[in-house]
Design a binder for these strands. Structure first.
Lengths: 151, 151
DNA sequence: TATAGCATTTACGTAAACGTAAGTCGGGTG
DNA sequence: CACCCGACTTACGTTTACGTAAATGCTATA
């Protein structure tokens, strides 16, 4: 019944000279409410790059930070391609001003799209409400086919 | 140079005992700002049913009314499948209360989805704005790497 | 009759983000 | 030993609403 320390966990706990805490895919998935498939998919698309111990993926703190960014990007409507473009510019040894500017640029455009979407959405809601009113009225007429007001 | 009356137009003008005015696909497309492909696609999906004169499609007033409904449906976010489901229930010889109820039902659900979408959209806009603020600050720090306030 | 213009059909292609199936593997457990 | 769990890889499938050829046809006009 007792769960012994696996090789992976050994790596995470003992072989841990740099203070890294590794996480395997299952835990990672739970932590961020994504599926294993999604994590592998992101890796396949070059968005994540976990270490390997044999064939087992080990995610570091940096991987988790990246995933957070990816999920934020997705939430605000960026495509994975855009997210990748921005993330790829990250250089731990530089000022990253290029990355930051690209991010701002893309963000402004995306913000515009979102606002436009909101406008369309509001229009849609209005029109749907209007239509519902009409339909309800038709339905009422069917149910009570009396003439005009006084019943 | 003079454009003579085509067979289609003849059908529309002369062979027009019932007062129908037919429209060919090109005109129809312009009138409603859709492509020919779209009109044929809708027909293929059973959403439209124009008459035929030989192989040429002729759209009646009723077809145009249907198209309007389809486009409204799309605008408010219904799938073509849903639209078809609602339209298919239309019976010119009945009260259509079944159709109307289905429409109301679907509309209420769709309205809920739209409102939820709007909420998510607003959240996204907020988060994007926040993120942009942070990034702009980082960028400013890169440009002017002085310490804290007083320059 | 050659050409322009509008129409027709068939059918594969596209985008995004994974889902899902299928089969395999290594490690730990009773 | 038999088994289960968690992980791995490969690769086809899904969804929606058309886009985009490609090849062909009918009609009217110069």
């Amino acid at each position: 019944m007792m769960k012994l320390v696996s090789v992976a966990e050994a790596a995470a706990n003992e072989n841990n000279l740099t203070g890294e805490d590794y996480v395997r895919i299952g835990e990672m998935a739970k932590k961020y409410s994504v599926t294993l498939r999604t994590l592998r998919f992101y890796e396949d698309k070059g968005l994540l790059n976990p270490k390997r111990e044999g064939s087992t993926r080990l995610y570091t703190r940096r991987d988790r930070a990246r995933l957070k960014l990816i999920l934020l990007g997705r939430k605000v409507g960026f495509s994975l391609r855009d997210v990748k473009q921005m993330i790829d510019l990250y250089d731990p040894s530089g000022t990253n001003s290029k990355q930051l500017r690209l991010t701002i640029d893309k963000s402004e455009k995306q913000l515009g799209r979102l606002q436009k979407q909101r406008q369309l959405l509001d229009e849609a809601i209005d029109e749907l409400n209007n239509h519902m009113t009409v339909v309800r009225q038709l339905l009422a007429d069917r149910a009570a086919p009396q003439v005009s007001a006084a019943g």
